[in-house]
Simulated assay, not measured.
Amino acid sequence: MKKKILSLTSLLLFILMLFSACTKSMDKSEDIEIFNPKKSYEVADKYLELIKNNNIEEANKLCTEDLISNNKEISTGTSRIIAYAPDNLIESSKSAFITFNVIRNSSSEPKCDLDNYAIKVIKEGDEYKIDEIKATNLKQVFVRNKSLRMINEDGGKSDLIISLNNIPKDVYLKENGLMLYKEKVPAENFGPVSLGYKGKKIAISTTSDNRAFISIAFIEESKETQGPATQGENEGNTQQQGGNVETGLEELTDKPIAKKVIPLDMLNEVKLDNLVFTQEERYLIVEYMNSSDVKRMKVYNSATGDLVSLNFDEMFSDNKYNIELLEFEKDELKINVSAKDGIKDLDNEILGEYNIDIEKEEIKKI
């Protein structure tokens, strides 16, 4: 009987020891953090934001030594990143590839690139680091012979988007309550242009002196799948060219891929700086310098062309305060309000950073 009691006691002790060992093993496994895809995305997103702001030194700190050592020179080049939107995330047990659609613009000419960046993030100790970056050019928009054209990643012959001759001749001004009169559209040259993140929309500006016209073109299939232009269309193009033989001959064989153009606005006494879509392309942000050399901003609904009522002019006088776009996520913006150089009559409480909810048309100081 005693032996049975001792045997039962030993069995109970063994079970308790085994349970305790399993519990400790589970505790230790819980202490081991697996690869976190959310943290990897945050690192990749922060890297692109730093590059966009030309903060190369801080961006390099997010990269592995191997990646930095394999690049002789890291710079933004002739065009700069003005915006980007997340595209996809592919994860494994030890790394993640995060892809972004990236918009690059040139400050010297009407030119825009849509690139796809694939950023590989790994874990080094407790830190998440970028170990590889691959960039692919998807689309390029550029001007040739008074025409806006697009070339795809496969190269070859470019597609005609729209020519200056096909820009609307006159439009109603959005600032007028009673739209009784139209005003002539400035269309001597193309100004800044900007692609959407899927390559299906293009924000277009045309300029004459210090006036600017802004519109959005919706892109459909390329001309290779549309078929050649009809004889009537060719005749119309030839008449519109006004004797420009070189451009006329080019457009005789081209059918524009811009199938719908929405006029947004016409701005007087301005110099356009930048056009950029929000991440979901629901809105277009227009940055410009006004006649007082003050940096300003307008936001438009990209589907209807309507100006969003954000009351910038009421809150921040347009001859005293600069409005600068800092960053955006989906339909929310962050701006910085600063004073124009040399202005003394200021309200210092106005200066600083603000969050903007475009959908709700709300502006809140941070």
Rank of each mutant, 00 (worst) to 15 (best):
G243L: 10
D254V: 03
F213K: 00
T238C: 12
E251R: 06
T225E: 10
V245K: 13
M179W: 11
N234A: 10
V185K: 06
N234K: 14
Q226L: 14
T230N: 04
N210Y: 06
T230H: 08
L178F: 11
L249F: 11
Q226H: 03
E183S: 14
S215P: 06
P192V: 07
K184M: 10
E220Q: 15
T207Y: 03
N234M: 13
D209F: 07
P192R: 02
I214K: 00
E251G: 01
T247N: 03
K174P: 01
Q239C: 11
S215Y: 02
S194Y: 01
E188I: 11
G242H: 11
P228E: 08
L178V: 13
N244P: 05
P228Q: 11
P256V: 05
I214N: 00
N237G: 10
K201N: 05
A217F: 04
K223P: 00
K182P: 03
E233M: 08
Y197V: 02
E183Y: 04
S205C: 04
I204V: 15
K223L: 07
K174D: 08
E224I: 08
G196R: 00
K198H: 07
N244D: 15
K198N: 12
K201I: 03
T225F: 05
G196M: 02
K182I: 14
G227K: 11
N176C: 10
K200G: 09
I202H: 01
N176L: 11
I204S: 01
D209N: 15
L180A: 13
A203S: 04
G227M: 10
A187H: 04
V185E: 07
R211L: 04
I202V: 15
Q226G: 08
K223M: 04
F190Q: 00
K198M: 09
D209R: 15
Y197D: 01
F218E: 04
K198F: 05
T247Y: 01
G191M: 07
E233P: 02
E183V: 13
I204N: 01
S222A: 07
E183Q: 14
T225A: 06
N176T: 14
N210W: 06
E220G: 14
G177L: 13
K182H: 09
V245P: 00
T206G: 07
K184V: 12
Q240K: 10
N237D: 10
Y181Q: 12
Q226R: 12
F213V: 03
G177C: 05
G248E: 03
E251H: 05
E235P: 01
N210L: 09
G236P: 01
P228N: 13
K174N: 10
Q231E: 10
K184W: 04
G232N: 09
E251Q: 15
A217L: 05
R211E: 07
A217V: 06
T207L: 06
T230I: 09
L252R: 01
A212D: 03
Q240C: 04
Y181T: 15
K200T: 15
A187E: 02
K184N: 14
K200A: 14
G248S: 13
T206N: 07
L195K: 02
G248V: 05
